[in-house]
Computed example of a mutant assay.
Amino acid sequence: MISTVLNVAIDCEDAYGLASFWSAVTGRPIHPESEPGDEETLVEMAEGPTLYFNQVPEAKTVKNRIHLCLRPDTSREREVERLLGLGATFVADHRRPDGSGWAILADPEGNEFCVLRGEDDAPVH
């Protein structure tokens, strides 16, 4: 027996608003039946689990224990700039001079996520 990961649940203050940010990040649409003010909103990925945004009364107060890692279809630096333009904030820099590593950003509600080396970033041998 096994279990399949159906979705990644993200607690938030504004389910539709945060889903809109992640929809722009991933290029995937918000579920067509979702609308502003909904307490639950989905962004369905082309592959893998759905991003499920669940409105909760409490605000985020500590570092995430689980987070998303993104691999951009461009360079990591271009993607970091794009995400900052969408409303993300820069949290920490773990990029190394050899091109490896990652950048940690946070979405508009403070949930941390990583941006890994992108498809346009050549691996160093």
Rank of each mutant, 00 (worst) to 15 (best):
R82M: 06
P72M: 12
K63V: 15
E39S: 14
Y52Q: 14
G48H: 07
A103P: 00
T41H: 00
E44W: 00
D98Y: 08
D73N: 14
C69L: 04
R82H: 11
M45D: 05
N54G: 03
W102M: 03
A59C: 02
L86F: 10
H31R: 07
S75P: 06
D73L: 12
D38H: 15
E109A: 12
V25N: 05
R76M: 12
I30N: 03
V62Y: 02
T89Y: 00
G101E: 09
L83I: 06
E58K: 13
N54D: 07
T26I: 09
H67D: 05
L51S: 02
R28E: 15
S100K: 03
L86W: 06
P32V: 10
E58C: 05
V91G: 00
A59L: 14
E47D: 15
G87Y: 01
K63E: 13
E109N: 06
R76V: 04
G101Q: 08
Y52D: 12
S75L: 10
S23E: 00
G85V: 08
E81F: 01
E33L: 13
K60S: 03
G110K: 04
N54C: 10
M45E: 10
P29K: 12
V91H: 08
G85I: 12
E77N: 11
F113C: 08
G48E: 12
W102I: 00
A92Y: 09
E39Q: 14
E33P: 00
C69S: 15
V80Q: 04
E47A: 13
T89L: 01
A46S: 14
P72K: 05
S100D: 06
T89R: 06
V56D: 03
E109I: 08
S34Q: 05
V62A: 13
E35C: 01
E35N: 05
P36I: 05
G85A: 13
D107R: 01
P97T: 08
I30W: 00
L105N: 10
V62P: 00
E77G: 01
R76W: 10
E44A: 13
L51W: 00
G48N: 11
V25E: 04
D38T: 06
I104W: 03
A24R: 13
P36T: 07
P36E: 04
P29I: 06
F113R: 08
L70W: 09
S75T: 15
L42V: 11
P29V: 12
G48Q: 10
K60A: 09
N64F: 05
V62T: 15
N54V: 11
A92T: 11
L86R: 04
C69R: 01
R71D: 04
